[in-house]
């Protein structure tokens, strides 16, 4: 029961770690460049979840001064994550642009095939 209790209280952190590992793994092991980018996004998302859940308080309200509200959610992580999302979007967009270029030049988006093509050209 204690374990379940603990799992329950840390569920966000847990999920974010799991997501992080999934993203990390996808990024490292998949050959398809698009999947790599997806992995990157999953990883980023897990981090956003982690960050936001740090500042989250059960029953807290959006941090706008209003009468009758006592508990506010910590706004700092949310604000930061907004920036983080923007960064992630730009990273993704840029990565996609690179993939487009790679596809134009190599005709494939498989990392192994690209390396094979390269080494053949060098040899």
């Amino acid at each position: 029961m204690v374990i379940i209790e603990r799992l329950y209280t840390n569920i966000y952190y847990l999920i974010s770690v799991v997501l992080f590992i999934i993203g990390f793994h996808t990024m490292l092991t998949h050959n398809n460049l698009l999947k790599k980018i997806m992995g990157m996004n999953i990883m980023d998302t897990s981090l956003f979840l982690f960050f936001v859940s740090i500042g989250y308080i059960r029953g807290g309200q959006a941090p706008i001064l209003r009468e009758g509200v006592i508990q506010y959610v910590n706004p700092v992580p949310s604000a930061l994550i907004l920036t983080g999302i923007v960064i992630s979007v730009s990273f993704t967009a840029f990565a996609l642009a690179l993939v487009v270029l790679l596809h134009k030049q190599y005709g494939t988006i498989d990392a192994d095939k690209i390396i094979a093509l390269r080494s053949r050209r060098h040899a």
Binding site: F51, Q105, Y106, I114
Partner: peptide
Amino acid sequence: KESVEASFRYLVLSALGSGGLLFSIA
């Protein structure tokens, strides 16, 4: 070709590094 490929590899590893950093900051 080479520069695009090299920069994609840099991007992937750099994104990994960024992820680690953000995690550590969190």
